[in-house]
Design a protein around this nucleic acid. Sequence first.
DNA 1: CGGCCAATTGATTAAACTCAATCTGCGTGG
DNA 2: CCACGCAGATTGAGTTTAATCAATTGGCCG
Lengths: 254, 254
Amino acid sequence: MAAMAVDLQPPPGSSALVLKLAAMTLMSELELQYLEGLQNNMLTIDKGTEFIVDTEDMKSTFVIRDGWAARHVSLPDGRRQILSFALPGDILGLHINFRRKAAYSAVALTDIQASLVDPARMIEINQKYPVIATAMSWTTAREFAILGDQAVRLGRLNAYERLCHFLVELYYRARVVGEASGDEDRGWLDFPVTQQVVADTLGLSLVHVNRQFQQLKKDGLVSLDKGRLRLIDIDRLVELAEYTTDHLDEFRFI
Amino acid sequence: MAAMAVDLQPPPGSSALVLKLAAMTLMSELELQYLEGLQNNMLTIDKGTEFIVDTEDMKSTFVIRDGWAARHVSLPDGRRQILSFALPGDILGLHINFRRKAAYSAVALTDIQASLVDPARMIEINQKYPVIATAMSWTTAREFAILGDQAVRLGRLNAYERLCHFLVELYYRARVVGEASGDEDRGWLDFPVTQQVVADTLGLSLVHVNRQFQQLKKDGLVSLDKGRLRLIDIDRLVELAEYTTDHLDEFRFI
DNA sequence: CGGCCAATTGATTAAACTCAATCTGCGTGG
DNA sequence: CCACGCAGATTGAGTTTAATCAATTGGCCG
């Protein structure tokens, strides 16, 4: 019952499921095994596939094991807004049992390895595995915070600041699941997305994203070659972004 | 175990707690009583008070009984982004046990009547009242969808569209808790916020919000006098907003 | 060597911001 | 009852940011 807080760290040699990282210290062997067992039903999703469509019924929950996805909303006239990225270890469609259709679509930004979780399993979790259920609530709270950051970016940061903030967030999130390396000063990660995707994420035009990226490179803050992004001065990036994303990685359990 | 869907409607003569509306058909008398009991610890919050501060430790969860609040993030240089409004029946700080500090601040837009819920109670709910716990998850999913809509507004709608979309969302949300009246064509509700608040919600400047409001009035879509907002042509507003918010009120339970 | 997708560039336009007043409604003290 | 003060709404003018349009370039694969 006592509150505790742990720092998230990529666990050596285990699956990167974010909710597992969150609750690992509290899970029994049984629960950890159950969590592993959930991830049997693996499938490959080709890059570009829209595997959750907001106009169709949801059929299952997805756990991303490898690759990147984006949650997005498409407007009737073709405009598109990406709400957030899903990295390895993230879950899509957690609330499948609460609504018939998804509130958003999801598209594979790269080829993806994912596990399917049957809706019935989600119910089973809620009934029989309270620690896992609580960890899922924590995951939701984290997603909520990430989406809140996205809203602040879109509403109150200019293009340059948006890009700084977005790249830093991505770096920290990638680090948590072992998909990025570096230290406090600098870091690097795979960056397998087109500038159009960044534009649809940051609510900007493709051309403008291109120019802001160039400025960022000219300012010596990032470099980018062959899909590999390097953050050269993280402190400065955070400073430019006007506010930090460090509230994302606190975990405090009941 | 069978899926069911109900339309949310303001329940005659009962408290408007959104999660209660959601799960009422599934709650036992015991659970309904417990939910009422939670709301004993009432307090008044004066307009303008920042009652959740993102730099301070959270002390409890708030249930809004009367009045409006806003969740927001303040940037170091004074810019402010409102993430969403909390109307009567909404809950603030649901995830109090997951993080020491809030991901956002909350401010009273009007004088507020609210109930305080002790963190220990939240834990108790998770352990002893699974139906309520599930309803809270549903509430969270709903908040998530609302925040997603906000991100789409901010990222991909222009000023005029943002305002249309925002007002329609507010109207539908207010109707659910009996704070607005009207039918499919037109409706009205109290609108106790300054244009600066709308600006901070929609990521616009005060001056620009003023001009868009004028345009909306000139176009015969809304009227506003003495804090009373009238939506004159809801269909047209929805059409202008480019996409609907009608996914908010579906409830589908385990 | 094409063909294609993504990145880049230049020129122009449009949306929204900023700055600086002014106006209006309302409550309050004299 | 009236002048004053204040918060919020409104207006006008000029500026800035970002979008749009239209090519052009670069890299990669077959």
